[in-house]
């Protein structure tokens, strides 16, 4: 599903070392991967590179069989519309209602494929997605009228409404209280069961992440320092990984 080869992205400040320095990995169809690493290690950047939002200085990105940086703008758009992305800050369009926000990917996908979509069918699918996150009664509200957890759930509904084969979640639980966090993870698990899609998830909540994802990746100083089963992460031979997982103060980190 995803194949990265030698991704290298320089720091904006040229005197600093590159943010990502030669990252290669493959994620198979239907896999659930968790991505972690210390703050500002380039996790979000890697996600944006996978989606074709940021161009690396060198390296290849292949998503769903298409080389992202060797394709026309139209081809890139086609691949991007097959990815459901949950942004760190939700990125709800604040000039649109909740309904229009969730309907937006469906409308745009129809436009890209030159199809017309009936309003009734649209309302049906949007309603279904919003029922899935428990917000069916908030359809006409504006994003600014919602609480943080509600906004996160609307953003989740928008990410999954078009049934994308690849789902990417950037910090889905940052800034939420423990109960809401548990609720969001429940929803993510439900989506995964329903759609059997490939899932890539970044989170600083390492315990929840290791319960959710079967495979873990860790970035440190621009390179991939762990890639393996989630259960064995705490016993990794790499001292950096061990220290990070156990949250110890003493160590190389």
């Amino acid at each position: 599903m995803i194949a990265l080869g030698g991704i290298r992205k320089l720091h904006l400040d040229p005197t600093k070392p590159p943010v990502l320095d030669g990252i290669s990995l493959k994620i198979a169809q239907g896999e659930t991967c968790g991505l972690c690493g210390p703050g500002a290690s380039g996790k979000s950047l890697l996600l944006k590179i996978i989606c074709g939002l940021v161009r690396p200085e060198s390296g290849t990105v292949e998503v769903a069989g298409a080389d992202l940086f060797d394709s026309t703008a139209d081809e890139l758009r086609k691949v991007q519309s097959q990815i459901g992305y949950l942004f760190q800050n939700n990125a709800l369009f604040d000039s649109m209602t909740v309904f229009e926000n969730v309907a937006f990917p469906l409308r745009q996908r129809a436009r890209l494929q030159h199809e017309s979509i009936e309003e009734a069918a649209l309302a049906e699918r949007v309603g279904e997605a919003l029922r899935g996150v428990g917000l069916a009664t908030h359809i006409e509200k504006m994003p600014s009228q919602l609480s943080g957890g509600q906004r996160k759930r609307v953003a989740l509904a928008r990410a999954v409404v078009a049934r994308p084969p690849l789902l990417i979640y950037d910090e889905p639980t940052a800034g939420l209280d423990p109960v809401t966090t548990a609720k969001v993870y429940d929803l993510l698990a439900a989506e995964r069961e329903l759609m059997q899609s490939t899932t890539l998830i970044v989170s600083s909540d390492l315990d929840a992440l290791r319960r959710f994802a079967s495979r873990m990746l860790m970035i440190y100083r621009g390179t991939l320092c762990y890639d393996g089963p989630a259960a064995e992460m705490a016993d990794s031979p790499n001292p950096v990984v061990r220290q990070f997982v156990r949250g110890e103060l003493e160590g190389p980190l």
Partner: peptide, 14 residues
């Protein structure tokens, strides 16, 4: 800065 432009692009919109 609120990533709404990225969200537009992810929906296949220029």
């Amino acid at each position: 800065v609120t990533e709404q432009v990225d969200a537009l692009r992810m929906c296949g919109v220029e």
